[in-house]
Design a protein around this nucleic acid. Structure first.
Length: 873
RNA sequence: GGGGAAUUAGCUCAGUUGGCUAGAGCGUUUGGCUGGCAGCCAAAAGGUCACCGGUUCGAGCCCGGUAUUCUCCA
């Protein structure tokens, strides 16, 4: 059975049992501050478990793409070293939202594994929760008894909190769980040692395959457990492991999920995958990370230097590093695996196929830059290693290499070993700890538990498509703060406030309670909650408050949002259908739109796009809006959906001219395009490989933008005295200026030459020294010039020039090199002595020195003292 | 969000406690030589040392700020 059959069988089995099949949510999470990536199948149902949203289907089945690389579940450093950890994996799960509980969950799991997938019964074990006195929880005897009909009692094991109490994160839904383990060792080994003794002992062949979680609590921020209003079932079975079992393998990497990449890597590197050794680890790392990174890019998350993008970069770089060190790759290689990946998974995940070119380009670009980083790191290392006194590489240096130049420390260690050196890892760790505590201190935020006012158990209803003010009921609020700043987050039963999403910023405005105004500074979405951010709240909440949106700001934002849709369509029609939205930001001042496109837009293309958008504005097209459509219906209307965007079951379609712009969108828009008035592109540029960014303004801001440019042009023309051909006039002016600059500089040189000559002629030959002196009204730069001219012209020179300009005085001394050698003179010392006459200081080298001071009246004295000095040489 | 670093000729980079009028290689232009493989020789052009301010007799170098890029941590 190959992977797609395994997946389909799972979904079909539960469909038969009355479950609705849900698609996988995007792997990259938006709107949840506690989570960057989907790390479990349950993430998209979190709000249902918490009681914030109602479930529309009581029984659900899905296969969810997950990424475990940060936070509570972090497997990144394990990946590759064993045969069963992954960064990205698919989690098969069946769900009950307040419907069936432990009984059916256990019975169906048994039925599917033994009767459908035909797994040997005598290889299976189950674990149940042993209880935890500190949490005040007893043993899960209910689950134990439910297993008894299927398994002998010596195959049902009690397990501790660590293994049998599942929590999503530091806070959130949780509950006891029952795991199913399988023993895939050979018969002879199984005879030698009972499998029950290897369960949860990190044995590579006695492993957990399915976790049945019985969710009934929510973990609060103070660590306590709260009962949830309903009980739920959340199960998760890793597709990759299941494939291993069903395909009779002992490593996930030997299944059809990973083997194609390993085969390709064998060809590219010329090294055989032998299952042992560093080269094999490297191949597993690369095969795993290729999948994670490609799916993340398809979901719209590009490698970058912070947040989720940084995690993606780190995964990719880990793959490159392993390929570089253990497979000998010196050129980009990960990107060349992308076509193999798309061949293999493109059918199950169309987003991957549609964006194949982009994924390849982005990965290749990242590989290039990282290989460059490695090169400079190696250079720095060689330099440092060359200047070493003992055989130990400073931990501080290793950390600097890593922290500042991104050079991986394991490479530092490897290179050190090759040279017979050691690395002071303690010093490195110390630097690392300091870095971490610095960041933690800076990022500390506190959120407190909710205070319930009028609980509803429903999503906030959004009124803002029609209303900008409404009388509403406060539902709950909490304090949130970071570094001393405290704000309140308030949830309402209904609200006219638009919460930031889909690139459109959140509304501002105020709440009126008991005749007083309380400012709303921002509106955010956290999962399905709409949160009003408020610096102050009423001491005592009334049953009803008036919510009022800042309508001016909202209208300007709507102009920009609609213009963004028009721009999107215009780009597609001018540049081609390969244009995909990669991100957007819409506020009241401007709009920003990122999209996939290869190469810079020409001026002509920019103008064409601008013209097309303005054309659509002048046509004053009315908005057509359809709410509550299914994805299928929206698809039939030709609506553009975004990869990596999570849509609910019911979607909204906004269209401006059904033949021009139709998009899935929850944002707010103008009633008719004419309101936008004018559209102007302000800039176009690159933000990553294959991704361009356009910034634009609308309405009054666009007018001002154009007005400013016209004014600028007008002023320039006026300065040129309104010539017939401004460009020609300016060109001539520039040429002329260039010529004159050259001429002036030549003349200045000539002048200086003349002065120098005159001075040379006035040389006095005293005791084997050509003494040249003079007092000049000149800037120090010119004096220096003269000094160096004379140096080339007069032999055995001792030059002293006293000069002043703008009330400042200076003395410059030049001494011929041979005099310096013969008599041991030092211009710097001499000039400092002379500078005392002008109230200043100075210095320089033995043959040339300068000084400066504020008192020009001492210049003559300085000169005569210089003359006297000669006799003492 | 917090730390570290980089920015010098068209490109890749040197530039050592602040002090030889800012250099190299490649590329460009010109002239000469030349039967080859990056042809050879000679010469020239090309720099607001990212930007703004400060310290100093003197700043590419030191200090502060800004911008851009890289990098680590969260």
């Amino acid at each position: 059975m190959n992977a797609s059959q395994v997946r389909a069988t799972f979904l079909d089995f539960f469909k038969e049992k009355g479950h609705s099949v849900y698609p996988s949510a995007p792997m990259v999470v938006k709107n949840d501050p506690t989570l960057m990536f989907t790390n479990a199948g349950m993430n998209q149902f979190k709000d249902i478990f918490l009681g914030n949203s109602a479930a529309s289907d009581k029984r659900v089945v899905n296969s969810q793409k997950c990424l475990r690389v940060s936070g509570k579940h972090n497997d990144l450093e394990e990946v590759g070293h064993d045969t069963y950890h992954h960064t990205m994996f698919e989690m098969l799960g069946n769900w009950s939202f307040g419907d069936y509980f432990k009984n059916k969950a256990i019975a169906w799991a048994w039925e599917l594994l033994t009767e459908v997938y035909k797994i040997d019964r005598d290889r299976l074990y189950a674990t149940v929760f042993e209880g935890s006195p500190e949490e005040g929880l007893g043993a899960d005897n209910e689950a134990y008894n439910l297993w008894k009909p299927f398994l002998d009692e010596d195959r049902i094991l009690y397990g501790p909190k660590k293994d049998n109490f599942w929590e999503m994160g530091d806070t959130g839904p949780c509950g006891p769980c029952s795991e199913i383990h399988i023993d895939i060792r050979s018969d002879s080994e199984r005879r030698k040692l009972d499998g029950a003794r290897l369960v949860n002992r990190d044995h590579p062949h006695v492993i957990e395959i399915w976790n049945l979680v019985f969710i009934e609590f929510s973990r609060m921020s103070d660590g306590s457990l709260k009962n949830l209003p309903a009980k739920h079932v959340d199960t998760g079975m890793g597709l990759e492991r299941l494939c291993m079992v069903l395909q009779g393998k002992t490593s996930n990497y030997d299944t059809d999920v990973f083997l194609p990449y390993i085969k390709t890597l064998e060809q590219l590197s010329g090294i055989e995958y032998t299952k042992g050794g560093d080269a094999s680890i490297a191949m597993r790392v690369i095969a795993d990370h290729l999948r994670a990174v490609s799916f993340a890019i398809a979901d719209g998350e590009l490698p970058s230097n912070n947040k989720a993008g940084y995690v993606i970069r780190r995964i990719l770089r880990r793959a490159i590093r392993y390929g570089y060190t253990f497979l000998g790759f010196r050129e980009p290689f990960v990107s060349s695996l992308v076509p193999v990946l798309v061949d293999h998974m493109g059918d199950a995940f169309p987003g991957l196929k549609a964006q194949q070119e982009l994924i390849g380009k982005v990965i290749a670009e990242e590989e290039q830059t990282f290989l460059r980083t490695l090169e400079t790191g190696i250079q720095k290392f060689e330099q440092h290693a060359g200047s070493l006194k003992d055989k130990v590489i400073d931990g501080k240096f290793a950390f600097e290499l890593f922290d500042t130049y991104g050079f991986p420390v394991d490479l530092t260690m490897l290179m050190a070993r090759e040279k017979g050196l050691e690395v002071d890892m303690k010093g490195f760790e110390k630097g690392m700890q300091e870095q971490k505590s610095r960041s933690r201190a800076a990022a500390e935020t506190d959120t407190y538990d909710w205070t319930e006012l009028n609980p509803t158990g429903e999503d906030t209803r959004f009124l803002g498509y029609e209303e900008l003010k409404a009388d509403v009921t406060p539902v709950k609020y909490r304090k949130a703060g970071s570094r001393g700043k405290t704000v309140y987050q308030v949830v309402l039963d209904r609200t006219p406030f638009y919460a930031e999403s889909g690139g459109q910023i959140g509304d501002r405005g105020w709440l009126e309670a008991d005749g007083r105004r309380y400012e709303v500074t921002d509106t955010l979405k956290e999962n399905n909650l709409t949160i009003h951010v408020m610096p102050r709240i009423p001491d005592k909440w009334p049953g009803s408050v008036k919510a009022v949106v800042d309508s001016n700001k909202r209208r300007l934002t709507e102009n920009n949002h609609t213009a963004t849709h028009l721009l999107h369509s215009a780009l597609k029609s001018v540049l081609g259908s390969h244009v995909q939205q990669k991100g957007s930001l819409v506020d009241d001042r401007r709009l920003r739109f990122d999209f996939s496109h290869f190469g810079k837009m020409t001026d002509k293309e920019i103008r064409a796009v601008e013209q097309l958008v303005n054309e659509k504005i002048r046509q004053n097209i009315s908005m057509e809006e359809h709410r509550g459509l299914s994805m299928e219906e929206a698809g039939q209307m030709g609506a553009t959906a975004l990869f990596g965007e999570k849509y609910g079951e019911k979607v909204r379609v906004v269209s401006f001219g059904s033949d021009f712009s139709t998009e899935l969108c929850g944002g707010t828009h103008v009633q008719a395009t004419g309101q936008i008035g004018l559209f102007a592109i302000v800039s176009e540029g690159a933000i990553a490989a294959g991704i361009r960014r356009v910034e634009a303004v609308t309405g009054r801001a666009a007018e001002e933008f154009i007005r400013e440019r016209l004014d600028e042009l007008e002023k320039l023309k006026a300065m040129l005295k309104h010539p017939k051909d401004s460009f020609k006039a300016l060109g001539q002016l520039l040429d002329q200026n260039e010529d004159m600059k050259k001429e002036i500089s030549a003349m200045r040189q000539m002048q200086l030459g003349q002065v120098a000559e005159r001075m040379a002629a006035s040389a006095e030959y005293i005791e084997g020294i050509n003494f040249v002196s003079g007092k000049l009204e000149m800037d120090p730069g010119s004096v220096k010039d003269i000094a160096f001219r004379l140096k080339g012209e007069v032999e055995r020179l001792f030059l002293v020039i006293a000069h002043h300009t703008g009330g400042k005085a200076g003395i410059t001394i030049m001494i011929a090199e041979e005099l310096v050698r013969e008599k041991g003179l030092h211009a710097g010392n001499l000039v400092r002595e002379l500078a005392s006459h002008i109230g200043g200081g100075g210095g320089g080298q033995p043959f040339f020195a300068t000084s400066g001071g504020k008192d020009p009246s001492g210049l003559d004295r300085a000169l005569s003292e210089a003359r006297k000095k000669i006799s003492s040489f």
